[in-house]
């Protein structure tokens, strides 16, 4: 069946951003799939290390941190430190990779977007989806380490899609916000990198909460990423549900940021496209 581009265009309708944009995106799901697959195959097929590169990168980071913080500083955690550390690194890597690649996706696709009509959000969403796929692949070494270290794999692992999808919404929304700003100013992406690093340090990936002086705890509790990490660690190795407020923060920020991102982006697209 031939599905040709949306068969009705009325520029006035574009003023109802959310409804028309989302309906529009559905028509381009084939393109979304194609872009995600292309992103992954380019990364895996065309480099010698291929899929191992995705696995190697967080493992190397983990090894360095494990030597420094596990052996020199001797951080105490309830589970073996390696499991605590790697789970944190993986989630924060997913976050930062996705926000940066979704944030740069619009500028990078400007040659297409300024010539052919495609809902521009498709490029941001496909970047976020590719990062999610990478995250899933990089879970494999974590699960192996859990087995080797005797932590095991709890049944709650089947609930992983919940934090995974919430994170996808968060990074897609943030990515769209960054992407709109990046069209105006090209240093926005560098700045975003720095901010993401800051958020990463405010997330207890490599240190236990017990070493944080009480007066600084609000900084960590105030970081939404902490809630995502609590839920993720609960499901992936602890086998427990994180406290209810973590779920509220996670789902709440995911929905708010996604809606905000799509809304701001579609509202400003008119001004962005003439700058591409």
């Amino acid at each position: 069946m031939t599905t040709v581009s949306p068969n009705y265009y009325d520029s006035d309708q574009a003023r109802r951003p959310l409804v028309s944009e989302l309906a529009n995106l559905w028509g381009y799901r084939g393109l979304l799939r194609l872009l995600v697959v292309r992103d992954l195959t380019v990364r895996y097929k065309r480099s010698t290390l291929g899929v191992w590169w995705t696995l190697l990168n967080p493992l190397l980071t983990m090894s360095v941190m494990w030597v420094v913080f596990g052996n020199f500083f001797r951080f105490e955690t309830e589970v073996p430190y390696v499991v605590y550390l790697l789970s944190g690194i993986l989630l924060v890597t997913y976050f930062s990779q996705a926000v940066i690649s979704a944030g740069s996706s619009i500028v990078n696709s400007s040659s297409v977007l300024s010539k052919v009509y495609v809902p521009p959000e498709v490029f941001a969403f496909s970047a976020a989806l590719a990062a999610a796929a990478n995250f899933l692949i990089s879970l494999v070494p974590l699960l192996i380490i859990q087995l080797v270290m005797g932590v095991g794999i709890p049944w709650t692992i089947v609930l992983l899609p919940i934090p995974l999808v919430a994170m996808l919404a968060l990074v897609a929304g943030l990515g769209l916000l960054v992407a709109s700003a990046a069209v105006y100013f090209f240093d926005v992406l560098d700045l975003t990198g720095v901010l993401i690093q800051l958020i990463g340090y405010l997330t207890p990936t490599f240190y236990p909460l017990s070493i944080i002086p009480p007066e600084f705890l609000p900084l960590i509790y105030g970081n939404p990423l902490y809630s995502y990490l609590l839920v993720f660690r609960g499901f992936v190795y602890e086998g427990v549900f994180a406290p209810w407020w973590a779920f509220v923060v996670m789902v709440g920020t995911a929905i708010i940021v996604l809606v905000l991102g799509v809304w701001v982006f579609s509202r400003s697209w008119k001004n962005l496209v003439v700058l591409l």
Binding site: V4, S5, N7, Y8, Y9, D10, S11, D12, A14, L113, S114, K115, V116, Y117, W269, K270, V273, V274
Partner: peptide, 18 residues
């Protein structure tokens, strides 16, 4: 449909090959 009009309106009925 690549450039949304700053003012005015554009309606296209049917598929477009640009």
């Amino acid at each position: 449909r690549v450039l949304p009009p700053t003012a005015g309106r554009i309606v296209v009925r049917g598929s477009v090959s640009p």
